[in-house]
Amino acid sequence: MASVVVSFELNGRPAEVLARPMTTLQSVLRNQLGFTATKEGCRQGGCGSCTVLVDGEPMPSCLLPIEDVAGRRVTTLEGITPIDGLSPVQQAFLDGNGFQCGYCTPGMEMLATALLERNPSPGRDEIVEALGGNICRCTGYQPIVDAIEAAAGAASTGER
């Protein structure tokens, strides 16, 4: 059970970890590197709370062996939070209360960030479809969809 060394890019900086074979990216982020914005809701790919970006694509970090991200670009919520203030998506979630308990929020924001990257002005239907894999048990989703709409609107009108 020899451990393996895996190098990848994490939030724009080089990262190198020593891990047991097939340790999940989620576990490496949370337990080894202390990047705990990435949550653990189900570890089955079913809830979206551990969503990160790998080479810009949203993926459930609980289903990715760390070996599979070797040499790739990983982005977590910590990586999209500016040194000062908040990203447009984060600001919109804060302003619109797109959260209650806050547990699904990092995954929602990563998904929203990826969506707006692909499509800066998605329709409400597109937002809802994109969020299909991210579960929230508190809000009933409307404030979350509203926040993403607001973030898209703010970006298109050049605010923030």
């Binding site: 790919g45 979206g48 969503t51 694509e57 949203p58 993926m59 459930p60 289903l63 990715l64 998904l111 994109a130 299909g132 894999g133 991210n134």
Partner: peptide, 9 residues
């Protein structure tokens, strides 16, 4: 099938 994130895998 599944969700955007899962379909990516």
């Amino acid at each position: 099938t599944a969700s955007w994130t899962v379909r990516n895998l």
